[in-house]
Design a binder for these strands. Structure first.
Length: 293
DNA sequence: AAGGCTGCCTGCTTGC
DNA sequence: TGCAAGCAGGCAGCCT
């Protein structure tokens, strides 16, 4: 379940390998991995071959590599199980869906393998469009995605205002990538635990102080997970070298059902919510009625 | 506007 | 032992 920290680990790992490299060859082994590319697998390969790659960028869980002098980017979403692996030429990985061979001016030939067990992830070539900020462009398929909490232009005050104005509940809002991006099921549950907020608390009843605390805890958990190299439970998430992260050892709520809450000792419980699991401490995280003041 | 639900997917785990 | 159902869930799109 790659979320912001895992995608950022991939982006930063990719940066030295791809920046300035030329695409020497593209092989699409699984056309479904290109379902969001507008014109099919052959067009994808033909247009990507020969392109020179620039520094990879990220917003939320979306990762893209601009192609020099083209107004286009190679856009990647890892979905549930996607990986981008930097390998020696000719090396293959299990469940490789797209192979991209690179020629780097300093590192020589390299291979990128886009591997994805469940095929929820995808790649596409997508036009870059201006955001309104000087010198900032994002792919068209990312235009509707909100800034993420590690973006220097993320506006906490604006987030607090918007979340309190929405008639929804708090976990639903955290998972809504048009409200705030980069958060998935793991870090939503972790941030809610840290802020002592129940997942089903109506957002209109969140005080401004509580909403501020929530976004601060979101940022803290994302930052800590990034520092630990992301969360891995198995081979489904690895960095560009195939190594796992360590944050799974730091989880307080997600996957901790039956274990004692690190604050109060009562067991963490897991319930079904939005067709996924919600993990929380029923003692520390209660729905508070009352004023929104 | 909000949200419920489905489809997209495979591999591992659980249950009969 | 073997098979089938259940489970993991990000996102788009449809419908109410």
């Amino acid at each position: 379940m790659p979320e912001l920290p895992e995608v950022e680990v991939v982006r930063s790992g990719l940066e030295p390998a791809v920046t300035g490299a030329r695409v020497a060859g593209v092989e699409v082994l699984e056309p479904r991995s290109l379902r969001r590319h507008a014109h099919g697998a052959d067009d994808f390969a033909a247009r990507l071959e020969g392109a020179v790659l620039e520094r990879p960028e990220r917003r939320g869980k979306f990762l893209w590599v601009p192609l020099a002098a083209s107004g286009t980017a190679l856009l990647v979403h890892l979905g549930m199980s996607g990986q981008v692996l930097v390998r020696e030429p000719g090396v293959d990985d299990r469940q490789t869906r797209v192979r991209i061979d690179l020629e780097h001016p300093e590192h020589g030939p390299l291979r990128l393998n886009f591997a994805d067990q469940r095929i929820f992830g995808w790649m596409a070539l997508d036009p870059l469009a201006p955001t309104g900020l000087p010198d900032e462009r994002v792919p068209a398929l990312v235009a509707h995605i909100a800034r993420d909490p590690l973006d220097p232009h993320f506006d906490d005050h604006d987030f607090i205002t918007r979340i309190r104005a929405r008639s929804t509940t708090v976990k639903r809002a955290l998972l809504d990538q048009t409200m705030v991006s980069g958060i998935g099921n793991i870090y939503a549950d972790e941030a809610l635990w840290a802020a002592r907020i129940h997942f089903d608390q109506p957002t209109r009843t969140l005080s401004a102080v509580k909403a501020r605390q929530l976004i601060a805890e979101v940022r803290r958990v994302l930052t800590r997970a990034l520092a630990e190299g992301g969360t891995s439970f198995d081979a489904q998430y690895v960095n560009v070298n195939g190594a796992s992260g360590y944050f799974s050892h730091s989880l307080n709520a997600y996957g901790q059902q039956g274990r004692p809450c690190a604050r109060c000792g009562r067991p963490i419980v897991r319930v079904k919510f939005m067709n996924r699991g919600a993990h929380y401490c029923a003692s520390c995280q209660r729905i508070r009625g009352g004023s929104a003041a």
